[in-house]
Design a protein around this nucleic acid. Structure first.
Lengths: 212, 212
DNA sequence: CAAATCAAGTGAAAAATTTAACAAGTTATT
DNA sequence: AATAACTTGTTAAATTTTTCACTTGATTTG
């Protein structure tokens, strides 16, 4: 009531909220307009109790006896996840992977707008890939600040990843998705999500090795 | 002693083993030959107690007063992770992302050998990308079985991902890395790791929205 | 309109995971 | 050779996360 009510939110809850959001988007497309936690459970792959518990960290979105209104819950999740607005994104490293991501339609659909790309190859600087202009890495600070970019995607080779991340942070970026492995020293107040293909493959290898 | 000693291993332990492995690889390159859990802790970003605990699920690899011999622990982790051997991999979906992954040197370096690629575009079938031959999707079962491929990487559009995964499973594949979002119905005995860019970006969005 | 059914929200219990603390083994030092 | 300084492996404690069970609100049915 009065005073802050900060319940500790499990780290994995946010991930699950994204999964619920995706499931609800699909349900909406299928024309389903309301759903119970039990039914959502089957689609999302987490227990009904888990779903209800996750949601109540943020409020009350359903009605006893009725379940959740799909469009309403979806909209609430958009707000909770912060995707009820556009986000400006910079991509650093216009190699094959970088260009694949620049061409990926999913980002724009989700309101993540890649406003600028950076590379140090003079061949690429000044060009556009999938409609995104490539700037020289030395212009990162200037361009990021002038375009008020808030997120970074890092697709540079491993060897320079750390330097690039430092540059992004210097330019005021506080949230980064890196495809290069980084030594795990995250400055405080900076969120770095890593997509590490080697680790993913090793997870598969471990599974196959220990499951027979 | 006698009887199986199956301690329950936390789900996140395997992920951390990969991180330790990566840290040890770097240490070895730097010529460090032994390290304490306390020092490894700083590099890997997990507590020393956590590291020791994770390792003891699999055996005793260090010596009191001495720490761990880098080359030995690294080698033990290779065995535990199952990466002390080659793995044959198939990649399905030779779009931009698929081709970027085919060109990625890291897989081969880690003993994940992409032996075949699949697509349904007649333009691509029969060609090679980064030395990997592209087969038609209809040949998946035949090629996967004849080449004894054990893992799959899925880089097809979202709409067909589910069908492709089903085909891979039919062909005997039990471990899959998917870049397309999948409805989370994993058949039993099949490991599916998903790399979902939208969810990663939403994690960043959530962080920025709730951290100010 | 009473009874039965459904289903969210929630506090308590259970389970899982992490951290802490320490006994025991190892090495270095005096 | 005894003492001090390290550092693992491990048991116990603390914390975190998930599941359970139940109360309450809502709807439907007889």
């Amino acid at each position: 009531m009065s005073g802050e009510e900060k319940k500790r939110i499990p780290k994995t809850t946010v991930y699950r909220l994204s999964v619920y959001y995706r499931a609800l988007s699909n349900l909406e497309e299928e024309g389903v307009d309301s759903i119970s936690s039990a039914d959502l459970s089957e689609i999302a792959g987490f227990s009904a109790a888990q779903i209800r518990k996750d949601l109540t960290y943020y409020g009350q979105f359903g009605r006893p006896g009725r379940g959740y209104v799909v469009s309403h819950l979806k909209s609430q999740l958009r707000t909770i996840l912060g995707i009820d607005r556009d986000w400006s994104v910079a991509l650093v490293g216009v190699g094959r992977l970088g260009r694949a991501l620049l061409a990926y339609k999913g980002f724009r659909k989700q309101n993540f707008i890649i406003e600028a790309a950076f590379d140090n190859d003079p061949e690429k600087v000044g060009k556009e890939f999938s409609g995104v202009r490539v700037y020289h890495q030395d212009e990162m600070d200037k361009v990021i600040r002038s375009k008020k970019i808030e997120m970074g995607i890092v697709t540079v080779p491993e060897e320079v990843a750390e330097i690039i991340v430092a540059k992004l942070i210097d330019a005021g970026i506080k949230a980064i998705l890196s495809f290069a492995h980084l030594p795990s020293i995250f400055s405080n107040g900076i969120k770095v999500n890593q997509v590490d293909l080697s680790i993913e493959m090793e997870g598969l290898s471990y599974y196959l090795t220990h499951s027979k």
